[in-house]
Design a protein around this nucleic acid. Structure first.
Lengths: 177, 177
DNA sequence: CATAGACATGTAAAGAGAGACATGTTGTTG
DNA sequence: CAACAACATGTCTCTCTTTACATGTCTATG
């Protein structure tokens, strides 16, 4: 249940509406923790009912801006320090690799080329963010520093996967006689 | 819904019971696609009712050994070649990094040390499998070659994460004056 | 022969997440 | 002023996944 704490964390950074948070999730977390708006609105309602966040009066278009409460900040810190990290990965592309032997060499070649390209582009995208940050484009404060660390993970993961796909292309499919 | 095709793929390699598949998922796929037995039994029943797999008569302890049917193999191949790869990642440890600014330097230091250790051990574990395979311990056929590719992904991913955690320790937490 | 551990299969309930449906507002542009 | 895009919030249903509960068999060991 990391969505809960993801929302809490984003709100610890700055207040926002469900709409804002949906966009922030998509922009900064899209690759590492996707979340759709129905789930976010639901979770915000639950968090508010538990007093971990609170909303001021409604704004222009029924806009409800939430901010984190002291209880919420306490819960967030508790999660960060006391709750075990969930190391679960669920990677469809890697699962598929277990079944590469069922694909023809041509199909596999094409598949791996596309995968490598996809990952390399993603890595480039995040590298762009990282460079902008390092140039000072986003200012410098503890929050943007953390974001920089997160972005670094994305770069490294996507680069690894791109390297892996390229490496996999060099593995001969059948037993060499 | 990769579990479905994961099961189909494992059964394409060799027939097995729900119990077998649960273990195989845990052993070879535990890190990249976890699945618990209730889910596996349920999915096997569904696959059987759709004719993608079939069971022979029950063995010793009500054991039902399933094998893939031609329809199942067709469906598996269709998935591998025609269905878009799902690139979704959901990584709690990376999500957490976005909120590192809420942790004290000491807490963060400890957290990152533990993370790095965890990933490095995992990488080592898979490196061990890879070396055994490369030594020829598991023989050589298309299936074990694919497994070798999958293992390589695990090694690279875990090493990246370990490197990342170590790198993160070198990032100063606050704006240097 | 008792008993423990591995083998073996399931059901039920609850939570997480995705996709479709539904509604209405504000601001910009032609 | 019409129309569209972006803003904004929700519900409902279905699927996927986990956890707890439940049951029974076979084999090796003391």
């Amino acid at each position: 249940m990391s969505l809960r704490h993801g929302l809490l964390g984003l709100l610890a950074g700055e207040p926002g509406s469900g709409y804002d948070l949906t966009r922030r999730f998509e922009d900064t977390l899209g690759s590492i923790w996707p979340a759709k708006h129905p789930q976010i609105y639901g979770e915000l309602t639950r968090l508010a009912s538990e007093g971990l966040i609170e909303a001021e009066a409604e704004g222009p278009r029924r806009r409800k801006e939430y901010r984190i409460t002291d209880a919420g900040l306490t819960e967030l810190r508790r999660w960060l320090t006391d709750v075990d990290v969930d190391h679960t990965m669920r990677l469809d592309p890697v699962l598929r690799s277990l079944f590469f032997w069922l694909m023809s060499p041509a199909e596999l070649e094409q598949h791996l080329t596309e995968e490598a390209e996809f990952y390399r582009e993603k890595a480039q995208l995040y590298r762009g963010y990282a460079e902008a940050k390092d140039r000072g484009d986003f200012g410098d404060n503890p929050q943007t520093r953390s974001l920089r660390v997160t972005v670094e993970a994305a770069i490294r993961l996507y680069d690894s996967l791109a390297d892996w796909a390229e490496w996999a292309k060099t593995v001969p499919p059948a037993t060499p006689k």
